[in-house]
Write a protein that binds this DNA or RNA. Structure first.
Lengths: 108, 108
DNA sequence: AACACATATGAGTAGTAACGCATATAGTTG
DNA sequence: CAACTATATGCGTTACTACTCATATGTGTT
């Protein structure tokens, strides 16, 4: 187990990923995307965000390689690059949920 | 699998966690901490950060329940609240590493 | 009690990131 | 080609956050 032996560079890479996931709208886009490819307009409708804002977040996710654009006619469909991300998010969420029930967060 | 069915509140909770992990110095502190409890002065020495800054980050981690302070004489030792976090970070890291090797990130 | 050490905290600052507006680009249809 | 739709992007603003400095609080020692 290499848990306590991360290099400085490793930490930065991980942080870059966490920074992307740390924005509610962005995380919401990822979760809403799920396994399916969806056009931007769908995401706009699903999230209620402005088109500009959705494009702004999609750009960040795209540049990090988390999502992949796919042109289909006039539409651009966005897809998760790797569905494993969903299970990682699930693991994280389960942990958070467990901690909540254990009352670990309630000391504040 | 509930991956694509997160509620708004769930997303916010997860984001709060990711926001904490998205800061390199903070993530570094967590990783340096590992399984052991260490006094603030140790963390200051290990990270090279100012004492004020370390306290600033420890406070954030403490208020989120990720670390737990433990007074021992004049020192305050900080410990990871749940070592499972380390394995989650490990999972994340392994995924990031894998993606790098697959070249998923190199399209930018 | 006075002092030294370990840590926390309040205030101010600087850098960054999310967002909206206006506009550009690319595709489709007439 | 003109009009329309879908998406991207440059710019300016605002809000947040990491950080530093100065200082407070708490603990052990003499």
């Amino acid at each position: 187990m290499s848990s306590n032996a991360y290099s400085c560079e490793q930490v930065k890479h991980l942080c870059a990923l966490f920074k992307l996931l740390a924005e509610p709208n962005r995380l919401n886009i990822l979760c809403n995307l799920g396994m399916e490819c969806r056009p931007v307009s769908d995401i706009v409708a699903a999230t209620g965000l402005s088109q500009t804002n959705v494009s702004f977040h999609l750009r960040a996710l795209r540049e990090a390689g988390l999502v992949r654009p796919e042109r289909r006619g006039a539409f651009i469909y966005y897809c998760l690059s790797d569905s494993k991300l969903l299970s990682l998010l699930d693991d994280m969420w389960n942990w958070v949920e467990q901690r909540q029930m254990d009352g670990t967060l309630t000391d504040e």
